[in-house]
Design a protein around this nucleic acid. Sequence first.
RNA 1: GGGUCGCUAGCUCAGUUGGCUAGAGCAUCUCGUUUACACCGAGAGGGUCGGGGGUUCGAGUCCCUCGCGACCCACCA
Length: 896
Amino acid sequence: MSKKLSKAYEPQNFEPTVYQLWEQGKVFATPKSFSTNKVSAETPEGAKEEQKLSDRQRLSNFQNDHHFSILMPPLNANGNMHIGHSLAVSLQDILCRWKRSNGVPTSYIPGLDHAGLETWVVFERKLNEQGKSRFDYDRDTLYKMTWDFVEEHKSNIELQMRASGIGADWDSQFYTLDANIRDQVYETFHKMWQDGLIYRGERIVNYSTKYQTGYADIEVDYKEEKGFLWDVAYDIKGTDQKIVVSTTRPETILGDTAVAVSPEDSRYRDLIGASAIVPLVGREIPIIADEYADPTYGTGAVKITPAHDPNDFEVGNRHDLPRITVIGYDGLMTPEAGQDFAGLTVEKARQKILKDLENEGRIVEKRKIVHTVGYDYKSGLPIQPLLKEQWFINMRPLAKRAIEVIKSGRIKFYPESKATVLCNYLENLRDWNLSRQIPWGIPIPAYRSEEGEWIFNANTDQAQIEQGGIVYYRDEDVFDTWFSSGQLPICVMPDGYTPISVMETGGDILFPWVSRMIMLSLYMTDEVPFDEVYLHGMVLDEKGQKMSKSKGNVVNPMETVAKYGSDALRMGLVASRSAGQSQAFGTDKVVAGRNLCNKLWNMSRLTINLVGENYIRYDGFATDKERGSGKVALNEPIEHWIVAKCLMTKINIDKLLDEYRFAEAAEVLYGLIWGDVADWFLESEKMYENNDLLAWVLEYVLKLAHPFIPFATEAIWQVLPWTDGILASEKWNEKDFIIARASVAEISTIGFERLQDFIIETRRILNDLPKGKYKLLYGQDELLKTNEKLIQKLSHVHEISFTDAILEGRRKEILPIVVEGREAWLEVPANVKEDYLSGVRTRLSILEQEIAGLERRLINPNYVDKAPKELVKETEKTLSEKKSMAEKLCSYLGEG
RNA sequence: GGGUCGCUAGCUCAGUUGGCUAGAGCAUCUCGUUUACACCGAGAGGGUCGGGGGUUCGAGUCCCUCGCGACCCACCA
């Protein structure tokens, strides 16, 4: 080997330069013009060739799509890639590279997320570490500081994306705070405002006292917990009667403004309209009748705290009850809670009130219960339901339309079941709180006058504006990030690339993101945002457990890339994974991926070695007349076979990827590379040295493998002396395909498979024999005769020769190789023959059972009548083959 | 309470509309250094497809039922 290629593939030595090559070559740029390069039957030459093909051979694998587009779920501009991101972008990139290679105009749009609260939390922590707080600055200053902070870190994630081999259109990269996105968000907000879908109102919102902001429903983590249900006795005014209510949150008693009972509940009928006295506080509150009170739960009487419970809030609205806020936004009790309680934490207040109630003898019962408690998804602290005036979207009309579209099947889901899941979710969707009380995000374009009148205005860089002589003040809040990211499909895709072909993302953001994209897109454009949705599951650790920092089982993808290579990580992630399913991930799979890269590398070294440094590349595929004219020509059975394998594998992979069966596609590819090309074809070509075919097969395999193993295949492509250009921008040429296919002689491919069977059996026998040099003899067998040398090479027999003697296994030192249709023997020492024959006996008895089974099936008239004719024929054929095989075995045993 | 998914070889998983002997990778065992690769080659062992019932000529696949596991949703105070 003249060129010094290392024995092992070393990804670190190639990945950065390969990526540079791609980027400089602009191979991932979104094509502007839409001339599909379909050759197919439209060219006269192609048509002629195509006509020769049977239906089975016809190429159906070239995509007819007008375009292919993917929107990358934006990555946190301030964060690091985690293993889930790696999986996502791997799948996306496989699809894009594959489509691109099939000549489909492809647009893969990458993006970065300002990541609202996520980033704000990080920034605020940094601020606090410097001894500052958010209250030291005005909102615009905080926004600018956070912006600069993110800018400093952006390049980090951008490098990680490139290290992952993502072939995205970097020139079209977006950032979720870009002006066009903001404009879109404002337009949508304005339209909703005008359509009456947006309203501002005081509602109970899920409030994070840790981060001082309201949340959407979806940001609350509910956990089932053991807790207590206290029964507390309230006095009834003017009597010595008491009414006993049940509560899990006694501290909210301080904010009670009513006690509700069911109108159906005979126990309390007489008390309706009476007044109860709030314990410790002494406030007089009405006893009201409301359906909300469940007579079967607790005591059947429930305290109503409209300011701290969404249900109570509703009850309060129905009965016009006052709202008394006793827990503040800081998570501490308010002055309204009374002097004894003001300033206490919720937990302390609860302890105190329980003690006080106990002292007064008001706690009638304390029961252990299991109930669900809402937690802040970010801080892990309890969420407080608090009264707050916020912007809400009335989701019902939006959800209704989305449900219709999903049920119509217009958007296809992988896995299919997620469509049902999504519809269930949408059917129960409640109004969406858009306001976040943090400085980092897209400001809400609403201004308020002193009188409390709200107007829309998109110039949110002004803290206050004047209109008609009235001064309006900007809402200090920003949008929920899902509101803006839900609109990405309608504002970041290049012209001609919508709807997005497939939305590939994690199953965990089906509700927060996918559902919103559908709803908002339908609302704004009357069109679906994407044709298909592919949801991947979670990447679990080796033991199948969720990865988490606290468990310490988190895999850092960049470390894996550094150690095993980017391709190895990609193959490892894709292997054994199906849509929607969470899957364990471990080093084993990555190692397998790395080994495949290495295999490919060495296959290439061998090929270069065989064809020579100065090989001049073949000029297309030879038709029958063109043999020997610098074109690829097929001579040996294995050469026909390998070409057929290559062609079939591509068709197969196309089909699998079309259905998003990534793991199966990878497996099929693995089988072709390792099993067919390396183990059989290359071994054989050491003898035949059909250089043009060697080069053709290697290039073919590289092209086919490229979406899965982009770096290694490109690195090899660049190393090959006879190729030029960039593999990532190579396209399959349909015309060549047709000619290649026409050149394959079916007889030869079948012939090779027979040969394979024989070689495998010979190897098996040799493996069982004691070490030694064995001689293979064959009789009147054309296949063996014409492939004598190949058999010797591949089966590792020491000698091979024809014999016209009638052997039939009579002699003790002759051992028959029992393969259907073959006449061959091994010369062996007499003592080993007996061992082999006992194995033959076992095989015979298995064979006899199989024959009996097949015969039974064929005797059954139901089977013969009802099963498809082809299948019956097949069964008959199998039976006769097995019978003749059994006869042969019998004869050997009889004679031996 | 409602919903979704899963249970196939020691492990991780394939198995499309029911149809030849249920597959792959890893792991295990045996043999091997044949001029690309030990990140290798040749071979072997290993499964009553979670249990039970049903439909069918035929079930891992369809239906019913039970069991186990994972996850999601929901305002039982």
